[in-house]
C-alpha cells in the first residue's frame, strides 16, 4: 500500500466538491428552523401547552388571588398579565431541550454532522424554530386576558415591544435547554430538569405579589432575577411608566445568556457522538 501523503486533490479530478455560497450559517439555520416549524405544524398537539397555559394561569391567578392581593380581579390583571408575558414564554422554552434531545438520538443528526454545514446550524435552527411557540402563547394570553378585563394602557407599539422583549428573553433561555438537550441522553430527563430550573425564575419573581411583601432573602433573589426585571419592563410597556432601565437590563441579560450558553451548547453538541 502506498503512503497516504501521495494522494493529493490534484490527482483526483473527479472530486468536484459542492460549491459554497455566502451566508451559509444563516441559510442552513433557516432551513433547519423551517424543518422544526413543519414538524410543529404537523403535530399541533405539541402546541397544546402554549395555547392552554395562558388561559389556565391567567384565569387561575386572576380569580384566585386577585381579590386578596389587589382588591379585585381587574386591578390585579393589570399587574399580572405583563408578568405572565415573561412567565409563559419562559415555560414554553423547555420544549426546545426535549425536542433537541430527541433529534440528537435520531440517525438524522448523523447525516447533518456528516454534511458541510456549521456546527451551530442545527442548534440555531432548533432554537429559532421554537420562537413560534412563544409568539403563539403571547397571542393567546393577550386575547384571553383582554376578554376577562385586561387593558393595554399604552399603545400598540409599546405592547409589541413588551412581546418582543419577553420573546427575546425566552429565546435566550431556550439555549440553556438546548445545552441540556445536548448533554443529556433522555428527553424526559431534560423535561424534568427544565421544570425545576424554570420554577424559581418564573415564580420566584414579582409576578404574583409585590416584592415588598416578601421576606428579605427572597427579595434579594427577586431583585436579581432577570425574569423579574423583564416583568417590570413589560408592566411599564403595557400599563405605562418609565422602564428604560429595565428594558435595557433585560436586553443585556438576554444577550448575556446567549453569549454564555450558546457556545456551551455548541461545544456539547460537538463532543457528543
Amino acid at each position: 500500500m502506498s503512503t497516504v501523503t501521495e494522494t493529493r486533490p490534484a490527482d483526483l479530478p473527479v472530486f468536484a466538491p459542492v460549491a459554497r455560497r455566502p451566508f451559509g450559517l444563516a441559510r442552513h439555520a433557516a432551513a433547519l428552523a423551517r424543518r422544526s416549524l413543519i414538524k410543529t405544524m404537523r403535530n399541533p398537539e405539541q402546541l397544546l401547552d402554549v395555547v392552554l397555559q395562558p388561559i389556565l394561569f391567567t384565569g387561575l391567578f386572576a380569580f384566585l388571588l386577585g381579590g386578596a392581593v389587589a382588591g379585585g380581579t381587574e386591578a390585579y390583571l393589570q399587574s399580572l398579565v405583563p408578568g405572565l408575558f415573561v412567565m409563559l414564554t419562559l415555560m414554553a422554552t423547555m420544549q426546545s431541550g426535549t425536542s433537541f434531545c430527541d433529534d440528537l438520538n435520531s440517525g438524522l443528526f448523523d447525516r447533518f454532522r456528516s454534511m458541510p454545514i456549521g456546527r451551530s446550524a442545527p442548534l440555531i435552527g432548533a432554537a429559532v424554530g421554537d420562537v413560534v411557540r412563544y409568539v403563539l402563547t403571547i397571542v393567546v394570553l393577550l386575547g384571553f386576558s383582554t376578554l376577562i378585563g385586561f387593558r393595554v394602557e399604552t399603545d400598540a407599539a409599546h405592547a409589541l415591544g413588551a412581546a418582543v422583549l419577553a420573546i427575546g428573553l425566552a429565546f435566550a433561555f431556550s439555549w440553556v435547554f438546548v445545552l441540556f438537550g445536548a448533554v443529556m441522553r433522555e428527553p424526559s430527563g431534560v423535561q424534568g430538569l427544565g421544570l425545576v430550573l424554570v420554577m424559581p425564575f418564573t415564580f420566584g419573581s414579582n409576578l404574583l405579589a409585590p416584592t415588598e411583601t416578601l421576606p428579605g432573602w427572597l427579595q434579594a433573589w427577586v431583585d436579581v432575577n432577570p425574569a423579574s426585571v423583564a416583568m417590570e419592563a413589560c408592566r411599564g410597556l403595557l400599563t405605562g411608566g418609565d422602564v428604560t432601565g429595565e428594558v435595557v437590563s433585560t436586553v443585556l441579560w438576554s444577550v448575556g445568556i446567549i453569549a454564555v450558553f450558546a457556545p456551551l451548547a455548541v461545544a456539547a453538541y460537538r463532543r457528543r457522538v
Partner: peptide, 9 residues
C-alpha cells in the same frame, strides 16, 4: 429538499 438546501444547491 432540506438536504439540498443544507448543501447550498
Amino acid at each position: 429538499a432540506l438536504i439540498g438546501r443544507l448543501l447550498d444547491l
